[in-house]
Write a protein that binds this DNA or RNA. Sequence first.
DNA 1: TTTAAGAATGGGAATCATTCTCATTTAATG
DNA 2: CATTAAATGAGAATGATTCCCATTCTTAAA
Lengths: 151, 151
Amino acid sequence: MAMNTDYARTLLKQHGLTITEPRVFVLSLLRKFDTPMSINDIMEKSKHTIALSTLYRVLADLSHAKIVTTFSSPNQKLLVELLDEEREHHHHLYCESCEKVFDVSLGEELEGMIEKLISKIGETHQIDIQEHSFEMYGSCNNTGQHSLRRN
Amino acid sequence: MAMNTDYARTLLKQHGLTITEPRVFVLSLLRKFDTPMSINDIMEKSKHTIALSTLYRVLADLSHAKIVTTFSSPNQKLLVELLDEEREHHHHLYCESCEKVFDVSLGEELEGMIEKLISKIGETHQIDIQEHSFEMYGSCNNTGQHSLRRN
DNA sequence: TTTAAGAATGGGAATCATTCTCATTTAATG
DNA sequence: CATTAAATGAGAATGATTCCCATTCTTAAA
Ligand SMILES: [Mn+2]
Ligand SMILES: [Mn+2]
Ligand SMILES: [Zn+2]
Ligand SMILES: [Zn+2]
């Protein structure tokens, strides 16, 4: 536990952010579970000791500092994950029955091809492409709920 | 114009949906512009003659009937596009300065590799992967607004 | 250590997109 | 045309996110 809060403090210091209880809590939590978490996940784990508005601000701050990254699940819920240097570029697989999110690396070969293709596409459209995302949606056999989907 | 409404009526009939003014309008519009449109785009073009709630329902109906498909831009705005049989599987490139969305086809080779990779990933995670999306984000030189992004 | 100044927080109001409700209108069918 | 189910319009309700402001922390200097 202390390990994780130390990690959090160090990270904040490194990025020139002030060390506050909500920020440390959020970072420790993300490190502890090492998986993308939603606003509600974090609120529940904090037993609602953090104000919702604070959580949004903390995430925005951490995101601007590139300490975390945010993205949306198919049901449009905001998800946050740590953005370590050692954490390599990766993509996500969403299971719509059990609502889990898995990190997926495409591998050098494919990622390389994609890079090449992207620069070609960028030229064609005269657009400087800075980012790409590749996401997969599926379901394990647990249920047929499709609970990650809106509609 | 008449061409487009005929197209719309035919499409609705083919899919067993009743022909109503809002549905015909939306489909004609999508065909006329042949580009993904947002809720606001459609409302403006309709000069607000369609109720907002109706538009949402119409899009849900058309989407369930697989006549259109919806997806979200990086700023989380809902976008709709026609889903013709002749329109092949494709992906999207978002320009964050001029807010345009471009259709992009990856090409057989890459799409084939991705399919193979996906089935491998599906096995690894014991998940039946039904869909994938590949999106690119960039900006042309028009402005540096990044207006498609939230934050 | 104390203190001052700015930064961050909590709580609640405001905003925005989307969904829901229900009374009224319309489409399809014979 | 009349009937009946389906669709619509208008606005209320909901849910997520942002905004506001008074209060509380953090930090760094004295
Ligand atoms: Mn991840
Ligand atoms: Mn498209
Ligand atoms: Zn699952
Ligand atoms: Zn552009």
